[in-house]
Amino acid sequence: MTAVVDRNGWQLSGRTEGLEPLADRFRAFGWSCVEADGHDVTALRTILATSDDRPRVVIAHTVKGRGVGFLENKVTSHYARFSPSVLARATRVLERP
C-alpha cells in the first residue's frame, strides 16, 4: 500500500502547523517514508513504480497553485471557483513557454 501526502503547507482554513517532522511520525507507526518534489513527475513515477514490504508514504512537497502567480501559495486557491475569465487567465499563464 502506498499513500501520497500533498505537503503544500495549507489546509482549508490556513497554514498547517505542528505536523513536522511528518516523515518521522509515519516512521513511528512502521511506515516506509519517501520525500520528493511533488512537481517532479519523473521522480514520482520512479518512486511509485517500486514496491515495499510494508506500508509506504510518499510526502510530495508542493506549492499550492504553482505557476499561476495570482493563485500561488494562497489559501484562497484551496477552494477557488474559477469563472470562465479566471480559468482563461490561468490557462494562458500555464501555456506560456
Rank of each mutant, 00 (worst) to 15 (best):
T91I: 12
I47Y: 03
A60F: 10
V86C: 02
L87T: 11
S51V: 13
G67C: 04
H61L: 04
T50Q: 15
N73G: 00
G67A: 04
E72T: 08
G18Y: 09
I47A: 06
E35Y: 00
D53Q: 10
G65N: 05
V57A: 08
A43F: 06
T50F: 00
A23V: 06
S77D: 08
P84A: 14
V63N: 03
G30H: 05
R92H: 11
F82P: 07
V41N: 01
D24L: 10
S77P: 02
R56L: 05
H39G: 08
R89D: 14
S51T: 15
L48R: 01
G67Y: 03
E35K: 04
P21T: 07
S83K: 13
S32V: 12
S51D: 15
R56Q: 09
W31S: 02
A49K: 07
R66P: 00
F70L: 12
I47R: 01
R54F: 05
P55I: 12
R27I: 09
P55K: 09
I59W: 10
D53W: 04
V57C: 05
L71K: 11
F82L: 15
F26L: 09
E35V: 10
T50I: 02
G69T: 13
R27H: 08
D52V: 07
L19S: 07
L71N: 03
I59K: 01
C33L: 05
R56F: 03
T42H: 12
A28W: 01
I59Q: 04
